[in-house]
Amino acid sequence: MKIINYVSVIAIPSIILLILLYAFMEKNKVFDIFLKGAKEGLQIVLQIFPTLVGIFVAVGVLRSSGVLDAIINFVSPITNLLKIPSQIMPLALIRPISGSASLAVATDILNTYGVDSTIGLIASTIMGSTETTFYTIAVYTSAVGIKKIRFVLLVALIADIVGMITSVVLWGIMS
C-alpha cells in the first residue's frame, strides 16, 4: 500500500519533470507555449461554469429534500447483494450519461461522506476511471451517420461496470 501511495505522490511531478526536461533540451520556448495552453484551459472552465451552477443546484435540492436518500434506500437491497455501497449508486447511474452531472454528484458525495472516507475515495476513483459512455457513443456515431452500433454499447457498459467494481474492491482492500 505504501508503494501505491508513493507512486501516486510522484506521478505528477515526474511527468512534469520529463516533459519540461525534454522540451527545454529541444530548445522550445517553453513558457510561451505553456501560456498558450493555460489560456485555453481558462476558456474551458468559463464555458462549463454556467452548466456547473445549474447542475449543482439540482443535485443540491435532490439531496436536501430527501429524494436522494429515498432513492438510495430503494436501491440498497440490490447494491448490498453486489457489495457496492449504496451511497455510490447515484454516481454509478449518472456517470455514463452526463459529464457535468456526474461531476456535481461526485462533489456532493465527497461533501456528504468526506473526501478521504472510503466512500469518498471510491467515488473519486470511479470519476477518474470511467467516461460518459452514452454521450461518447452518440457523438461518434451520429457524426458519420451510423445507425447500427453492433456490440459497442453493451461492451462499453460492461467495461464501465468492471471499472466501478474494481474501484470498490480496491478500496475495500486498501482501507
Binding site: I4, N5, V7, S8, V9, A11, I12, L103, A106, T107, L110, N111, V115, D116, L121, S124, T125, I126, M127, G128, S129, T130, A159, D160, V162, G163, M164, T166, S167, L170, W171, M174
Partner: peptide, 27 residues
C-alpha cells in the same frame, strides 16, 4: 478529480492516481 478533492480540503488529493490506473486498466 484531483481538483475537486483539493477544493474540498483532502489530506491527500492525489492518493487516487494509482487506484484510478488499476481500475482503468481492468475496465
Amino acid at each position: 478529480v484531483i481538483a475537486i478533492r483539493n477544493s474540498l480540503g483532502s489530506q491527500n488529493p492525489t492518493s487516487i492516481i494509482v487506484p484510478v490506473w488499476i481500475s482503468t486498466i481492468c475496465a
